[in-house]
């Protein structure tokens, strides 16, 4: 079977000559269809850079990436990507922003009304569909951006710290929603996160990346039963995974 995402000795160097910044790599990673993989690493290690390269929005300096068997050579429109910084536009409401994804793709908005409603409901924003982004809290905006990234129902999802700005409680509940969403549809997910717990809770595999220039330090198979709820998180096996990753980062001196 062809891998959903195949990253082969990919590197990224920004700028040239004396100003060159090695941002990522070289790194190899194969993600199978339906797999949930987290990219975990310290700030500046090239996680966003890697995600952008997979999406075809940034050219790699060397190596090759294929998505669903096709070599990435330009922006890929057959995936869903949620960027680290907000892509909500201030002149549209929450609903309008979600529809923007569809309109830009030239899809018929009317056919997606139910989907938009259920997405908003899942992230607890149904009462704010008509609000402008500036009327929302940071966490609410992030939830709206999450709906925007998912509305066209892609089978491959690239999520760049989708829960980064959420408070601990909302974070917990959105993680659960994200997990249910994935258990339901089994999309291929590449999730960038800073949170070790989040990575262990949500993923089939956790990719631990070293400080800049990011290299893939270790790939951990997380062998825990689904769905992973609070009880799972309190189990000793969960703590062992978390501890193992913490030790790696401790060695790097980042924690």
């Amino acid at each position: 079977m062809t891998a959903a995402v195949d990253i082969q000795s990919v590197t990224k160097v920004f700028n040239e000559g004396a100003a060159a910044v090695a941002a990522f790599g070289p790194g190899d990673l194969r993600v199978e269809a339906g797999e949930f993989v987290s990219l975990l690493g310290p700030s500046g290690c090239g996680k966003s850079t890697l995600l952008l390269m997979v999406a075809g929005l940034l050219e790699s300096s060397s190596g090759a990436i294929t998505v669903k068997g096709r070599r990435v050579s330009g922006p890929r429109t057959d995936i869903g990507i949620m960027f680290q910084d907000s892509t909500l536009v201030p002149w549209r409401t929450v609903r309008g922003n979600i529809e923007l994804q569809l309109e830009l793709r030239n899809l018929d908005v009317r056919g997606y009304e139910d989907r938009i409603r259920s997405l908003l409901q899942q992230v607890n924003l149904e009462d704010f569909a008509a609000s402008a982004p500036y009327e929302l809290s940071g966490g609410m905006r992030q939830r709206a951006a999450f709906c925007q990234a998912l509305v066209h129902d892609p089978d491959t999802l690239l999520l760049d710290e989708p829960l980064g700005k959420l408070d601990a409680m909302t974070r917990e509940s959105i993680r659960r929603d994200l997990q249910n969403l994935w258990l339901d549809k089994k999309q291929t997910v590449l999730l960038v996160t800073h949170s070790i717990e989040e990575a262990v809770q949500l993923s089939n595999r956790v990719v631990v990346i070293s400080p800049r220039p990011g290299r893939i330090e270790k790939i951990l198979e997380i062998d825990l039963p689904w769905p992973r709820d609070l009880a799972t998180k309190n189990s000793s096996r969960f703590s062992e995974y978390v501890m193992e990753i913490q030790l790696i980062f401790q060695r790097y001196g980042v924690i």
């Binding site: 929005l57 960027f83 892509t87 923007l100 994804q101 830009l104 793709r105 030239n106």
Partner: peptide, 27 residues
């Protein structure tokens, strides 16, 4: 236009005209 929105438009595969009317112009 912010880098994020530029990338967002490319990722949707929107034509230049469509991206212009829906994002660049209002922005």
């Amino acid at each position: 236009l912010s880098e994020e929105l530029t990338r967002f438009c490319s990722a949707t595969g929107a034509t230049r005209t469509r991206a212009f009317l829906k994002v660049r112009l209002p922005a």
